[in-house]
Design a binder for these strands. Sequence first.
RNA 1: GCCCGCUUAGCUCAGUGGUAGAGCACGCGCUUCACACGCGCGGGGCCAAUGGUUCGAAUCCAUUAGCGGGCACCA
Length: 919
Amino acid sequence: MEIPKTYDPKQAEEGHYSRWEREGCFAPEANGDPQAPVYSIVIPPPNVTGSLHMGHALQHTVMDVLTRYHRMRGFRTLWLPGTDHAGISTQIMVERQLKKEEGKSRHDVGREEFVRRVWAWKEQYGGEITRQMRREGASVDWSRERFTMDERLSRAVREFFVRCYEEGLIYRGPGMINWCPKDQTALSDLEVEKEPTRPDESKLYYLQYPVKGGDGRVTVATTRPETMLGDTAVAVSPKDERYAGLIGQTLLLPVVGREIPVVADEFVDPEFGTGAVKVTPAHDPADYAMGQRHGLPQVQVIDQHARMTAEAGAEFEGLDRYEARKLVVEKFEGLGLLEKVADYEFSITKCGRCRTVIEPLVSTQWFLKQAELGREPLRLIREQHEPRFVPENPYEKVYENWLAGLYDWTLSRQLWWGHRIPAWYDEAGNVYVARTEEDARAAAGTDRLEQDPDVLDTWFSSALWPVSTLGWPDEDSPDLKTFYPTSVLVTARDIIFLWVSRMMMTGVKFAGEKAFDDVFITGTVFDKHGQRMSKTKQNGVDPLDVFDKYGVDATRLVLASIGSTDTRWNDNQVESYRNFANKIWNAARFCLLNSEGAEVGRGFEGEPERWALHDRWIVSRLNKTAREVASAVEAYQFHEAVYALYHFFWDDFCDWYIELSKSDVTAEAAGPGRDAARSRVLTVLEQALRLLHPFMPFITEELWQRLPGVGKESLHAAYRAAEVTPTVMLAGFPRADEALIDERAEAEMRAVIELVSRVRNIRTELSVKPGEYLPRLFVGTPDGRLRHVFANSAEQITRLTRASKVYVADRLESFAGGANGGNPDGVDIPRASARAVLAGGAEVAVPLEGLIDFAQERARITREREKQERELQKAEAQLSNPQFVERAPAEKVEELRRRAAEAGQRIKALGEMLEALGE
RNA sequence: GCCCGCUUAGCUCAGUGGUAGAGCACGCGCUUCACACGCGCGGGGCCAAUGGUUCGAAUCCAUUAGCGGGCACCA
């Protein structure tokens, strides 16, 4: 068998995925066990316009690990993929293309044609992210792929809308909304962002309004002077004594000449500014509310293009809002009514998409009363902590606080791409909300209906994603019955409100149950300077580049380790896991190059008590690792799983087990002993590949396929009937067998490892040439069992320390003195030996005639003795504290006593060593 | 303004009441027949500061500082 020395990820990433997909391995139908428990995840649908970024890769890795793990555990597992139509983004992208290629606007081609072109665009370019997901190894069920504008999902949207309308949860009416003058649409509060002002914007203007019938003036402070053209009142706090006499009086609005009242309102903070607030009900959310309370008229002075209207006056009409601001300030200055301009930092609301400054406008839109839909989710989180957030802090609280403060959601968007609002108007302007146009006609009794031109917020359809993708509103949909509620939602924290909370609302309302049991919130990946990765900053790391450079599996290990932690991206980490992949490759290479006569699943016959120590040990380590990985994955502690796998594979399996087994595995002579040893390393490797598979699907499959003795019977029982090429992804995930976890074997192996390490350390410190053989090693231990262990492992100890022979006795002293009473071979330990103490009272001596500098050696041992003395002192100080002995748990006291005793023993042994060296 | 999180080895991060950990980086030595993307050995941290609780605190509490988030109709 030809196996390259270096793992080539590209080669392994090429073939397996398409076979898995083709053979239906990703579909829950592969599971033939009718009793199988169910595990399901719906993907947060990426924008159809999007391409893969690190955040996706992180989420997808987490979801894929969970999916593959549960699949291997025999769950009927579904991970459902799909994409989101992403209203504004997609529309803008196609508009841009239209402009560039044909020089036309969407209005030039008309609505119907434009929407047709968006669909065409989607068909042509929309699949990019789904191709990239295949590259990631994402084991999603492509046969169930969904798009938010699919006919069936659109039906769900209409059903949701109509039902809410019928219950009075959705209404149409005027309201204060966020208007983007560039995108020409209303936006919800979650689609806008606050930004701090630049220095040149950070101004607060103090304007004076004269009191009618007197020479008094009232000063108001504003950041937006141009809105004064639409002022219809000035408000003061009812508690503010300074203005008590002014309430009810009339002011003359400068420039405009309108008479406006002074009203009292609790909202006004007497401490801020002048304590008097200009009120512009048509252009400020707070003023709108005040206007409602006091029955003030609304004067719209700014239009949808952020230009001044005719109502702003002839001088201002047509001016941009910032030009108008300048002019207003000039006018006030000319009138002597500009009191001052102060520096003042505040925040400006901008469109989350295009960064244009939002214009608050009063407009007739469709709204959803979220507070009512949110009531049950709020109860669930408060009373039952459902869904369970991971990490719980701070997300559960963030989510709860959000639900507790819900307000109406602006649903309608003045776009062409999206779900058209299912509302029709007759010529008299009556509205008919219906599931279909036919229903609307029937209700209206006429065919002469116009459908509402607006579309719904993209997040409206997203809110239905878990139910709509599984078949709702068909309540007897088998998928809905089987896979709902989903097991976990994996997403980033910035859409907890936009999306997570709303899925819970629709889920409890329409499916009668929470949409998911758990919510796993992934961390954020920053660049190496701690900056958020963004397109505009050009500082993003493209996951596909990382895949190309280091391989998908290595990247996935990094991402899985990141999990819920915010992290600065660092290629070094990926490189080290690339090295790990190569390590796996080469360990397998060794096993395979020595696999003649071997077969996976054999070699561990008979009672474990009769196995060699290192076999009992590796099986124990394997089972512990299986236990750790399983509990870590189930607790979403992926870094713990990765850590356990990395160290099991590299340290336990490669550094020790393979090395300990090497002479048996590579023995010249074929025979049952060699076959068994070869089978054992193969078997451990095969189990390790299964454990690694959820994290590293490609390399594990590539290697697993090459193992002798794997086949259909290796698959988890639930998949044996499936017509698939045997694959590790459908093999059973190793279940920890507690009976095979052998603490004694682990302790004994630790002793062997320590012995080997100490001897190697001595070799290095005394500059013994790597190739040179130590003629003899002496080991003394009072522990009879350990003496057996060392004696039984003599071949391995000598090989791993490059020694020719190892002698074991009850104590080093037994070898000393020339009488040779204690040891069978009758050898003495020469004075020129390096010595060290080991755990549990064991000692080792390494004769190094000619290499020992006695003074140096004495110094080395003296240093060690001093260290032990400090240890002992510390322990004794604590033990002589009666408070400690009295109050600390008995086991802790006991442990400290043990440590003190051991230190004492070591000090004594080191003293004897000094004597043996000769003072 | 309110709320929350973070601060541990040069870097990226684990740990979380009872002798400080990993990977990378670093030093020394190795073409040891799976692997130099490797092997062996090693150096490196008063766990942000101060105070408190405790027999014991990097770990719990409080305050402070720095960094980062979220929420808020203060014009």
